[in-house]
Amino acid sequence: MANIIGGITTSHIPAIANAMANGLEETPYWKPFFDGYPPVRDWLNEKKPDVIILFYNDHGLEFFIDKKPTFAIGVADEYHNADEGWGIPTIPPVTGESDLSWHIANSLVEDGFDMTICQEMKVDHGLTVPLNLMWPGYNYGHVKVIPVCINCEQHPMPQPKRTYALGQAIGRAVASFDQDLKVAVFGTGGMSHQLDGERAGIINREFDIDCLDKLVSDPEALTKYSNLDLVEIAGAQGVELNMLIAMRGTLIGEVKELHRNYHAPISNTGSGLMLLEHTMPKK
């Protein structure tokens, strides 16, 4: 059976790609952020997951608000990035994993999550920045990625209790897949930030750190928040916490925190990097 070996939370902002492209990792501004990553890279290189299930939100590359899926899943063998409007250089394609993707899609719809199923899907910085952070130099082609995209832009959007349940349903779907695959799950984005409005620039360090604590030991507590609570406490884009919550939902067995690095600010956001080791529940 397929086995979820761990979950990772990470930021996905475009400024990271720019910093890496310009070799700024060791500058005083970026060092405290990038210094968090080597232990996570080492873990990935040691454990060698076959598949990454990656929760992210599209920021207007594949999807526009003419049709905005609440939840979408990619089932393709390959995904491409494209110009997002500010000239991030074109990067190598991302490898997909069609069979497990379809299995998850089937399982989710049967489970009451009516996904938008995508055989072609341009993936934006929300997906590519985390991959490049884990395998710098865009060396992520060997790992198969299943994109799961959550609407974090337009209200109504799925509530934390729903995204947590989505994660749990994906966890069950992976457990019922009959091939021996090692799967790691990335929850990307956040943490607290607000880009728009006179309130732009708020960061809530205390709340972010509390969220990381709860992601480890009491994820159910996070499902008590509504999206408007998150907007109020963690900023308009604080709702990206939903991706971290979804990731934690997939970890249906035992978790152990192996590594954490919280740093703020990077660009306008609080950045929460965390590595959780996961042991699948006994059958």
């Binding site: 089932v75 299995h103 089937n106 049967e110 055989q119």
Partner: peptide, 19 residues
């Protein structure tokens, strides 16, 4: 989990077929 009902004369557009 996956629907594999055989209905003669019916080809279902499921995951493998859609791919």
């Amino acid at each position: 989990m996956t629907q594999t009902v055989d209905i003669p004369g019916t080809i279902m557009l499921d995951g493998p077929m859609a791919t």
